[in-house]
Nucleic acid binder design. Structure first.
Length: 407
RNA sequence: GUGGCCGUAGCUCAGUUCGGUAGAGCACCGGGUUGUGAUCCCGGCUGUCGCGGGUUCAAAUCCCGUCGGUCACCCCA
C-alpha cells in the first residue's frame, strides 16, 4: 500500500474543491466589505498561548492538542483554534486602538475522526479587538449569519447566551458550584471532575443534560452592566433581522468567553455535529496572555461543516473552452490568450487531441461554450457552440467577447 | 478514551454461506462520426483480493494475528 494522508486529514481535490474556492473567496470579500483587514499568524504557537488562553479546564487543552518540543527545547503547539494566536499578535504589536481582522486556515485537534470532525480542519474567522461596545458583538454575529445564509446553508439560527463578566460571574460560579455539589453523585464521572476545575463546563455535558437542565443559568445572575449589554446586542440583532434563540445552557468549549457567547446551527447536519461555528466576547483574554486589558469579540466557522451543510452543486471550473483542428493550434492559443486577458475563465487541452476529446473535456469542466478554431479562420471567423442547448453559430473572431456577454 | 461496521481494479461494489481459472458498473483512453460534448454502439487499459502466518492437492473464501479505513458515543468547528 502506498502512502496515505494522515488519519483525520483530507485532500480537497477537484471538482469538490470548487465549492471550497467559492466559500473562501466569498469569505474574503465579505470580511473586506465589513471593514476587516487580513491577518496572518503562525500555525503553531508557544504552548502557553493556548493553555493559558483557551483554558486548562477545556477539553481542547486537556486532550486534543498537537504539542511537541522543537529542537531548541521549546514546547510548541499546532493551533487548535484561531483566536488566541490573533490576540497574542495584537498584544505583541502594542495593543493600540481598534483592530478588525479576518483569517482562514487549518486548525488541528487530536481526536477520533468522524463525519464533520477531522484532526486537521478548516476555519474562517474574524476578531474585532479594542471595542467593548455591544454593536461590535452584533456586527460579528450578523456577519457570520449573513455569510452562512448567502452560501446556501439552510435554516441558519444563532443560539445566544450571556456568560457574565468579572463583576457578576464569580458569584454565579459559586452559586452554580453549590447547586452542582448537592447533586454531585448524579453527575457522570467526567463532570464530577470538571466540576472542580470549572463548574460552567458541566452545563455543556450531554450525558448530564437532564440533571443540568434545572441548574441556575448565568443570564439570571447578570450584573446591571452585563444585562444592559446583552439587551443591546439582542436589540441590534432584531433590527438587523438575524434569527436567534436564547440558550441558557450554552457555554462553549473555550474558557475565555465573557458576556456574549453564540453558536450557529443549521438543519442540514442531523447528527451531533450541528455547530457550524461560534464565537463570543473575550474581554479577559489579552490579560491572560500577559497583555493589557483589551476587549474583543470574534467568531469562527467550520468550512468542512459548511460544505457538508450545503446542497451539492456542480460548479463550473471555466466559462469557455477553446478547441481547434490540428492545423489551427497557434491561432487557438492566441484566442485563448485574448480571453484570459479580458478575465474570462478559459482553457484548452494540451497535446493535439480529437475534437471529440476536446468537447468532452469542455463538458467535464463545466464550460458554457466552446470556441472552435478551424477552417473558418481563413475568413476571420470561428464557430461558437453553447453546451447547454447544443446550438452553434459562426461569428467573426473579434466578436467572441461580445457574444459571451449576450449569451 | 469506548463501541459498531468495512478492507477485492482509479471509484462504488458482487464473489466469502458450501475452498476449485479474478468479476460487474462507473471512470479513463480509442473507434463508430477523417469538424462536435452531455445520449447510443463497439473495443481497450487497470489487481500483492490490506498485510503476515497457518490448514489444504488447492485459499479472496476457513483459522490465528496484525494494520488501516469509516460511523457513532463523548467533545467540538
Amino acid at each position: 500500500m502506498s502512502l496515505r494522508a494522515p488519519k483525520g486529514t483530507d485532500d480537497i481535490l477537484p471538482p469538490a474543491s470548487r465549492v471550497w474556492r467559492r466559500l473562501l473567496n466569498a469569505w474574503e470579500q465579505m470580511a473586506e466589505v465589513y471593514g476587516y483587514d487580513l491577518i496572518m499568524v503562525p500555525l503553531f504557537e508557544m504552548t502557553e498561548v493556548f493553555s493559558r488562553g483557551v483554558g486548562e479546564s477545556s477539553e481542547v487543552v486537556q486532550k486534543q492538542m498537537y504539542t511537541f518540543d522543537d529542537k531548541g527545547g521549546r514546547s510548541l503547539t499546532l493551533r487548535p483554534e484561531g483566536t488566541a494566536g490573533v490576540v497574542r499578535a495584537f498584544v505583541q504589536a502594542g495593543a493600540q486602538g481598534v483592530m478588525k481582522v479576518s483569517y482562514s486556515g487549518a486548525m488541528f485537534r487530536y481526536e477520533r475522526p468522524q463525519a464533520g470532525r477531522r484532526r486537521q480542519f478548516f476555519q474562517v474567522g474574524l476578531e474585532y479587538l479594542g471595542s467593548p461596545d455591544p454593536d461590535a458583538d452584533a456586527e460579528v454575529i450578523e456577519l457570520g449569519y449573513r455569510y452562512l445564509t448567502s452560501m446556501g446553508v439552510p435554516d441558519v439560527v444563532v443560539r445566544l447566551n450571556s456568560l457574565g463578566d468579572g463583576e457578576c460571574r464569580p458569584a454565579y460560579v459559586e452559586l452554580l458550584r453549590s447547586w452542582l455539589e448537592e447533586r454531585r453523585s448524579l453527575l457522570c464521572a467526567d463532570s464530577q471532575q470538571t466540576l472542580d476545575l470549572n463548574p460552567m463546563r458541566v452545563l455543556d455535558c450531554k450525558v448530564c443534560a437532564e440533571i443540568v437542565a434545572g441548574a441556575p443559568s448565568p443570564v439570571d445572575s447578570l450584573c446591571d452592566a452585563c444585562e444592559a449589554h446583552f439587551g443591546a446586542v439582542q436589540q441590534r440583532l432584531i433590527s438587523e433581522g438575524v434569527r436567534y434563540t436564547l440558550d441558557p445552557q450554552l457555554v462553549r468549549g473555550l474558557d475565555y468567553y465573557t458576556r456574549t457567547a453564540f453558536e450557529y446551527v443549521g438543519s442540514a447536519l442531523d447528527t451531533a455535529q450541528t455547530a457550524l461555528g461560534g464565537g463570543g466576547r473575550y474581554d479577559g483574554l489579552a490579560e491572560l496572555l500577559g497583555g493589557p486589558p483589551v476587549p474583543g469579540v470574534g467568531l469562527a466557522l467550520g468550512v468542512d461543516r459548511i460544505v457538508l451543510s450545503i446542497p451539492d452543486a456542480e460548479l463550473p471550473a471555466i466559462d469557455v473552452f477553446v478547441a481547434n483542428t490540428d492545423t489551427r493550434r497557434a491561432e487557438a492559443l492566441r484566442i485563448l490568450g485574448d480571453l484570459r486577458s479580458s478575465g474570462i475563465k478559459s482553457d484548452s487541452l494540451p497535446d493535439q487531441r480529437s475534437l471529440k476529446a476536446q468537447f468532452k473535456a469542455a463538458d467535464r469542466r463545466g464550460a458554457r461554450a466552446v470556441v472552435v478554431v478551424g477552417d473558418e479562420w481563413e475568413t476571420g471567423q470561428v464557430v461558437i457552440k453553447r453546451l447547454d442547448d447544443g446550438s452553434q453559430e459562426t461569428i467573426a473572431r473579434e466578436e467572441i467577447a461580445t457574444w459571451l456577454k449576450s449569451h
